[in-house]
Simulated assay, not measured.
Amino acid sequence: MTPLERRHAAIEATMARYRDRPFEWGKVDCAKVAAFHLKKLGHKILISKAGSYSSPLGAGRALRRLGYSTLAEMAEGIGLTPIPHARMLLGDIAQIEGDSPVGAIGLYAGNGNLFCFHEDHPGLVTFAPDRILRAWSVL
């Protein structure tokens, strides 16, 4: 399978699993979606070692148990390669502005859009953020 085919297969699997599920801390959130996606691409993600959580405060504690304070720190810590956001390809990870103290991330969907959660919608949406803060290649 080519790298683009792997990216496409991982996005399809991730969307099939999470597309119609409402946001819920610790079950269906940025970290869980990204971890599932990265596992589909062969990354070893040990998010289960963080323990369970059900609130933004709990998510912060879970990240600290893994040695990180934000999702962006975790992306760096697990070895994803930082890239300019203009070079993102399908399925890459992007950090965007968000209200959560752990940060907000999404999966690159192409054409400047991300698959991510937004406060005005109960589940994953295709969203064109005003600004991408950081980006990481998944391959």
Rank of each mutant, 00 (worst) to 15 (best):
P22C: 02
P22S: 06
P22G: 02
P22K: 01
F23Y: 15
F23P: 10
F23S: 10
E24N: 05
E24C: 08
E24H: 14
W25R: 08
W25Y: 10
W25I: 07
G26R: 12
K27N: 08
V28K: 09
V28M: 11
C30A: 01
C30F: 03
A31K: 08
K32R: 12
V33K: 08
V33W: 08
V33C: 13
A35E: 00
A35D: 01
A35G: 00
F36R: 03
H37F: 05
L38K: 06
L38C: 07
K39V: 07
L41C: 01
L41H: 02
L41Q: 03
G42Q: 10
G42K: 15
H43T: 11
H43Y: 11
K44S: 15
I45Y: 11
I45G: 05
I45Q: 07
L46T: 09
I47Y: 10
I47Q: 14
I47A: 11
S48L: 02
K49T: 14
K49N: 11
K49I: 09
A50H: 06
G51P: 06
S52G: 15
S52C: 10
Y53M: 14
Y53T: 13
S54Q: 13
S54E: 10
S55C: 09
P56N: 02
G58V: 12
A59R: 09
G60D: 05
G60H: 03
R61W: 13
R61E: 15
A62W: 05
R64V: 11
R64W: 15
R64S: 14
L66A: 06
G67H: 12
Y68T: 07
S69R: 11
T70V: 02
T70Q: 01
L71T: 14
A72Q: 09
A72W: 11
A72D: 13
A75C: 13
E76T: 07
I78T: 10
I78A: 07
G79K: 05
L80F: 04
L80I: 06
L80Y: 11
T81S: 03
P82L: 12
I83V: 15
I83P: 10
P84K: 09
P84Y: 04
A86Q: 14
R87S: 08
M88D: 14
L89I: 15
L90C: 15
L90V: 08
G91E: 10
D92F: 00
D92Y: 01
I93N: 02
I93T: 02
A94R: 01
A94L: 00
Q95M: 14
G98T: 00
G98L: 01
G98F: 00
G98P: 01
G98R: 01
D99C: 13
S100Y: 04
S100L: 14
P101E: 12
P101F: 07
V102T: 10
G103F: 09
G103E: 09
G103Y: 07
A104W: 00
A104Y: 03
I105H: 03
I105V: 06
I105Q: 03
G106D: 04
G106E: 04
G106V: 13
L107H: 08
L107A: 13
Y108H: 02
A109W: 00
A109L: 01
G110D: 02
G110S: 06
N111A: 03
G112I: 02
N113V: 04
L114T: 00
